[in-house]
Design a protein around this nucleic acid. Structure first.
Lengths: 223, 223
DNA sequence: CAATGGATGATACTCAGTTTCATGACGGAG
DNA sequence: CTCCGTCATGAAACTGAGTATCATCCATTG
């Protein structure tokens, strides 16, 4: 199962060497100007090994994406309708803190995704995958009505957008305490989309609004 | 400026012939199994002309995207802070009704984007471009505060998600009246994100919530 | 020592996309 | 009518990503 000490070490260092070489070359010469052959040569592996390990040139930048997605799904799958909002918030935190744990590497990646359209697009697709996953689970927790589906769609979008906002702030070093900010952001989303509790405690909430009464009524119906 | 009758006709029919041939071949043999050479040959043009007219294989599916994006931007640019929400709603309608006006062709495209990962990804990227555009304008209408930025991000995501929801329902023919549904969806978004009016009419809104009082307090502060 | 299996590397191939150059049709100017 | 500039088209060569195949090497196992 686990291979010999020697092979294991080499396997890991090969992947690490490729990532290091790729980021170095991308930084020095640019993404488009760096070919896979260049990376493989600089990392001391064959072109074949590059594609065997990473599948594509873009995936050198996001190698752990599938693992994070799986972790998110695991968290979501381990929850029920009752703990739905908590599950989503937790899952978002899983993603955010994964990036934060990467530290400077995440910022180097951001520097690339900010400047290389192809990588920015790849990142957007990753985000959409999270959103799709969230939507799917939130939708399953609902009652299947059109209303519920629409809410699931909006909530998934809001959750991902909030996450991206906090993550981007952290990547730009505009963010003092990402824990605090993600808590606030999730609280904001939860507040917006809090479901109708069947027998929950009630409160009188007074807010100012510029909506006319009909719009307010419709909004309330949609809660 | 306008070319001769002959060239004009041929130019337009070339693009149309390519699109027709592409959709036909994609449907018959699949997207990945159809090469650009196949399409060009079937359309009776050269490979060169294909790339000159469409730029990439994927763009045969979304040739009008740039034009729609420009139309959206035009609508957004023509508005001020006062008419912001209206502008966003209008811009979303521009997009939705463009697709609806395509009729069966939009549904053929949907059939492709639903089954071909590369095309689905391209579509996601297009959606993200709209979202980015909305975010940019909504953000500019705000006061530049962190709060305002976060709201812009969420609102753009919600607007695009709502649009996508209605569009997808229409594409699946689950939607009786897209005009009505987009109006409802935009009303829902507007209601969620209605800005804090400085001197707006006020109302007492009573909602049930499962939040404890501290969470409610924080939610209210974040409005 | 021999056999097996998994990881690696070399090579050739397909195809998307770019670049360059030739051609040919058209319209205007003499 | 002819010459000329322009623009659309086509032809061909090239780069580079990604795939498939096969040979090789090395560590474990019997």
């Amino acid at each position: 199962m686990t291979q010999s000490r020697e092979e294991d070490r080499r396997g890991r260092s090969a992947a690490a060497a490729i990532v290091d070489a790729a980021f170095r070359l991308f930084h020095e010469f640019g993404y488009d100007e760096t070919s896979v052959d260049d990376i493989a040569a600089a990392a001391g592996v064959s072109r074949s090994s590059f594609f065997r390990l990473f599948g594509s040139k873009e995936m050198v930048i996001f190698p752990e994406h599938d693992a994070i997605l799986a972790a998110v799904e695991e968290r979501l799958a381990a929850s029920t309708q009752k703990s739905a909002i908590l599950a989503v918030s937790d899952a978002v935190r899983v993603v955010l803190f994964h990036y934060i744990a990467e530290g400077p590497h995440a910022r180097r990646r951001y520097q690339l995704t900010s400047t290389v359209p192809a990588l920015r697009e790849r990142e957007l697709i990753s985000g959409a995958r999270y959103q799709q996953l969230f939507r799917q689970y939130i939708s399953a927790w609902g009652d299947g009505s059109e209303e519920s589906e629409r809410r699931a769609e909006l909530m998934a979008a809001a959750v991902v957008a909030s996450h991206n906002h906090v993550l981007r702030r952290w990547l730009r070093e505009e963010c003092e305490d990402p824990h605090l900010e993600i808590d606030e952001a999730m609280a904001q989303v939860n507040a917006l989309f809090a479901p109708d509790p069947v027998a929950a405690p009630r409160a009188i909430v007074v807010v100012r609004t510029d909506q006319d009464l009909d719009a307010v009524a419709e909004q309330l119906r949609s809660l």
